[in-house]
């Protein structure tokens, strides 16, 4: 099994493997295999299209958690320029599970805040696998309030398995830190655009997710409890996670129909990780247009619209 491909993608992996072999043979002999390779390429694309047109909610959960899935840092370096990372909550420490700082988007200054899972083992440990502690959310809050003072639009990138459930987290008030962000984001006097880029898990995601516009990348997910957690509580076994994912409706399609998500940003064929540059440029284009639109709105009207939208959830 090719680990760069998910279980339901293994037929694609096989074809890609064949293409690679043929390329090696073609390089080392006089036989011209170009036609055959082109034919297989086309077949592989068709197969991918076919598989990706029928993804279940659980399949999408797997794509959103794919080990090659682009993370916040991948987008920061491609969507923005001139990024300066800012550290610390000024009270306890600097939580590396959240990256924040000032940058430019299409030349205009903005505040970027995102959850980061980390790629290598070392980085994953340093980033606590993208599970922020209270100081992470308090750093985010500090940067958001700073953005308000300097009239910078806030762009958040959501990708977390959840806020960190640990003793230290509880001791330092993880609940309060999340709640405070929800309260302040509801009235922050600057446009806020939130984008779920991978996994949006519960309060830990929402804590940087209240704003004027909510995007989801096509194969990202957003849920109140992980499918495994839900399955464990209701069915008493994690093996029912696929059913739980289906029942909770964790995908952008369901959430857009419910009126919670505003926009789904299409991903390259086979997911964002198959063509990161294409994904980043698409995201950049959408963010530029959204910032332009929201920045033109008078701030009081924008805040009233944000509030009414919050009030309408579930109606």
């Amino acid at each position: 099994m090719n680990l760069n491909y998910l279980d339901f993608e293994q037929p694609i992996a096989e074809l890609e493997g064949k293409i690679e072999e043929l390329q090696l043979v073609g390089n080392s002999s006089d036989v011209n295999l170009a036609d055959e390779i082109a034919r297989l390429r086309e077949k592989s694309t068709k197969l991918t299209e076919n598989i990706y047109s029928k993804l279940t909610a659980w399949d999408i959960v797997k794509v959103a958690r794919h080990p090659l899935r682009p993370y916040t840092s991948d987008y920061i370096s491609r969507v923005f320029t001139d990024f300066d990372e800012l550290h610390g909550d000024r009270h306890f420490g600097d939580d590396r599970a959240i990256i924040g700082g000032v940058a430019r988007l299409d030349g205009k200054p903005v505040m970027v805040i995102g959850e980061e899972k980390g790629r290598t083992v070392h980085e994953k440990v340093m980033r606590n696998f993208g599970m922020p502690r209270p100081e992470g959310y308090r750093k985010a809050l500090r940067l958001m309030e700073m953005a308000e003072r300097f009239k910078l639009p806030v762009l958040t990138l959501i990708d977390t398995p959840g806020a960190y459930p640990g003793i230290d987290s509880e001791e330092r008030g993880i609940s309060e830190s999340i709640a405070q962000n929800l309260a302040v984001m509801s009235r922050l006097r600057t446009p806020i655009i939130c984008t779920v880029i991978g996994e949006g898990s519960s309060g830990g995601a929402l804590a940087i997710g209240v704003g004027d516009h909510l995007n989801m990348l096509q194969y990202s997910t957003y849920f109140v409890i992980s499918p495994e957690g839900c399955a464990n509580i209701i069915w008493k076994t994690v093996t029912k996670a696929p059913e739980a994912a289906q029942a909770m409706g964790v995908t952008s399609k369901v959430l857009q129909d419910l009126g919670i998500v505003d926009e789904t940003i299409p991903e390259p064929l086979g997911g964002a990780h198959r063509n990161l540059d294409e994904m980043a440029s698409k995201l950049q284009e959408r963010l530029v247009s959204q910032v332009d639109r929201l920045s033109k709105e008078p701030i009081d009207a924008l805040l009233e619209r944000r509030y009414q939208r919050l009030m309408s959830y579930g109606n």
Binding site: S186, R187, V210, C230, G249, L258, G314
Partner: peptide, 17 residues
């Protein structure tokens, strides 16, 4: 409440606001 999925999550934002 899990059975109302993301609608439940959004009640957190609503009540906080």
């Amino acid at each position: 409440r899990m059975q109302e999925a993301l609608i439940s999550l959004m009640q957190m934002a609503k009540t906080s606001a």
